[in-house]
Amino acid sequence: MIHLLALAVPASKAAPVGQHAAGAPGMFGAVLALLAVLALIVGLGWLLKRLPGTGFRPAEGLRVVASLNVGAKERVVVVEVNGEQLLLGVTAGGISPLHRLPEPLPVIPAATLPNLKQLPNFAQLLAQKLRKEP
């Protein structure tokens, strides 16, 4: 028992608060570990994009034409498959075909869509609000 007490470090010789022990990693090690984790995430994302069947790439011959939310988790979707359009009901429980459209939906002309160049962006709106004094 006396030998164990002799090995204990007195409180006056302990490392001051704010200093690391000899084996603890410093700020450089933490930044290096963070960069390694970020590189791993980016590398895995790149790899998953190149693997077939991962779902990141849109399927060829399949396109969502229109979508309408009809509830919190329910939607009605028009999907075009090889030139044929289908009306599908999408719920949390699954997908069910509702109707096969005899002719494709009409394309919305570009004139009816809002011109995005005329809309102010977030930076412009924020600068405008910050310039106004209460």
Rank of each mutant, 00 (worst) to 15 (best):
S12F: 11
E103N: 05
R131G: 11
K129M: 13
L48R: 09
P104S: 15
E103C: 04
P58D: 11
L87P: 01
S12N: 03
N121Q: 14
V76M: 03
I41V: 14
L86T: 02
L7C: 06
Q128H: 14
T112C: 05
H3G: 07
A30Y: 05
N82A: 15
R100N: 11
K117G: 06
N115T: 06
L113W: 11
K117F: 12
N82I: 10
A14F: 12
G94H: 03
L113C: 02
L87V: 03
G93L: 12
G23T: 12
L98V: 11
Q118W: 09
L130A: 12
R131C: 07
A22F: 13
L5Y: 07
L51G: 01
L7G: 05
A36E: 00
L51K: 04
S12Q: 12
K132C: 05
V70S: 01
L125M: 15
L34R: 02
L68S: 09
G94Y: 08
G55R: 01
T91P: 02
I108S: 01
F56M: 07
L68E: 09
V77I: 09
V78G: 00
V37A: 11
K73W: 07
K49I: 03
V81N: 04
A8C: 11
L125D: 05
G53K: 04
A15N: 11
E103K: 08
N121V: 06
A8S: 04
Q118C: 01
K49P: 01
G93K: 12
K13T: 02
N115H: 05
S96T: 15
A15K: 06
E103W: 05
A11T: 10
K129R: 14
